[in-house]
C-alpha cells in the first residue's frame, strides 16, 4: 500500500512538471494557433541558465532562478518575433517546420556552447524529506507540488479576472474582434509566449533538480510528454493542460512500477489514443473551457 502511494506521489511530481510545460503549449496554441515544438527546448535553456548563473557565475540561488526565468521569457518573445510572427498567415506546415527548426537550433547552440557530455548539477532544493506515517515524501516533491499549485492558482486567477487575462482570451477567440476592442494583438501574443516560456523555465529548474544532470537534449522528452499531456487534456484549454499533465505523470509512474518500465510510454500513448477516440477534443477540450 505504501508503495502505491509513493508511486502516486512520484507521478504527481513528474505530472506537475508536465503540467507546467503543457501550459506553455496550450496557451501558445490557444493564442497563436500553432504548436511551438521548440517549447521543450525552452526547458533545457531554463536548466542551463540556472547552471550558468549558479555554478559558473556564483549568483545567489533566488536571483539565479529569477534570471533563468527572465532569460526564457525573453527567449520566448524573441523566438515568436523572429521566427513565428513573419509566418502569421503562412500555411500551418511552414509554421510547424519552422518550430522544429527552432528546436534544432536551440539544441545545437547548447551543444556548441556546453558540448555533449552530461554536466552534473547539484539540486538547489535543500528541503529535508517529510515522513507521514510510513510514507516518505522527498523535499523536491514537496517543493514541486507547492510551486506548481501556486502557479496554477495564480495563472487561473490571472486569466479569469485581470484585464490582461481577458485580453488573452479575447485574442484567442477572435483576433480581429479583439483588435476592434483596442487590444494590441502583437503585444498580447508576446505576453503569452513570455508567460509560457517562464513556466517552461520553472519546469526546467524543477526538472534539473530532480535529475541532477544537464544535456542539450534534456528538454526533448519532457517536451514531447507535455505536448501529449496538452492534447490529452484538450489543446487550448488551460485547466485541461493541468489535468492532462498530472494524469499523464501518474499513469506513467504507476505503469512503470507495476506493469513494465519499458512499456510505460506505450501505455501512456495507448491511454491518449483511447481518450482521443472517445473524445477527440481531449478531456476538457471544446466549448466553455477557458481557452487562451
Amino acid at each position: 500500500m505504501e508503495s502505491v502511494i509513493e508511486q502516486i506521489i512520484n507521478g504527481l511530481r513528474t505530472g506537475s512538471i508536465y503540467a507546467l510545460i503543457a501550459l506553455g503549449y496550450t496557451m501558445v496554441y490557444g493564442i497563436a494557433k500553432m504548436i511551438n515544438f521548440a517549447h521543450g527546448d525552452i526547458i533545457m535553456v531554463g536548466a542551463y541558465s540556472l547552471y550558468v548563473f549558479i555554478s559558473l557565475l556564483h549568483i545567489p540561488v533566488i536571483l539565479s532562478i529569477l534570471l533563468s526565468i527572465l532569460v526564457c521569457a525573453l527567449l520566448g518573445i524573441t523566438m515568436e518575433k523572429v521566427a513565428y510572427k513573419p509566418l502569421r498567415n503562412a500555411p500551418p506546415l511552414a509554421v510547424l517546420i519552422t518550430a522544429i527548426g527552432m528546436s534544432f537550433l536551440l539544441q545545437s547552440l547548447a551543444l556548441l556552447i556546453f558540448k555533449a557530455n552530461p554536466i552534473p548539477f547539484k539540486s538547489i532544493i535543500k528541503l529535508a524529506p517529510v515522513k507521514i506515517g510510513s510514507i516518505t515524501i522527498a523535499g523536491i516533491s514537496i517543493i514541486t507540488f507547492l510551486v506548481t499549485t501556486l502557479i496554477m492558482i495564480f495563472l487561473t486567477l490571472f486569466i479569469r479576472y485581470t484585464k490582461a487575462g481577458r485580453a488573452m482570451r479575447a485574442v484567442s477567440e477572435d483576433r480581429q474582434a479583439a483588435e476592434l476592442m483596442g487590444i494590441d494583438v502583437n503585444r498580447t501574443i508576446s505576453m503569452v509566449f513570455a508567460i509560457g516560456s517562464a513556466l517552461g523555465a520553472v519546469a526546467g529548474i524543477l526538472y534539473v533538480c530532480q535529475y541532477q544532470t544537464l544535456q542539450p537534449t534534456l528538454g526533448a522528452l519532457p517536451g514531447i510528454k507535455a505536448f501529449v499531456a496538452a492534447v490529452f487534456g484538450g489543446i487550448g484549454s488551460v485547466p485541461g493542460a493541468m489535468l492532462g499533465g498530472i494524469l499523464l505523470g501518474v499513469i506513467e509512474s504507476i505503469s512503470k512500477a507495476y506493469i513494465s518500465s519499458e512499456l510505460a510510454d506505450a501505455i501512456v500513448f495507448s491511454v491518449l489514443v483511447l481518450v482521443l477516440l472517445l473524445k477527440p477534443s481531449g478531456l476538457l477540450g471544446k466549448n466553455r473551457i477557458e481557452k487562451v
Binding site: R166, A170, E173, Q176, M181
Partner: peptide, 28 residues
C-alpha cells in the same frame, strides 16, 4: 493607424456576424 488604435479615436465597429466573444460572459 494600426487597427487597435482606431477605437481610441472614437470609432466603434459592430462587425458582420456580431463577433461577440462567445466563450465569455455577457458582462465580460
Amino acid at each position: 493607424i494600426p487597427a487597435h488604435k482606431i477605437v481610441t479615436l472614437g470609432i466603434a465597429h459592430v462587425p458582420e456576424g456580431r463577433r461577440i466573444f462567445s466563450e465569455m460572459t455577457v458582462y465580460e
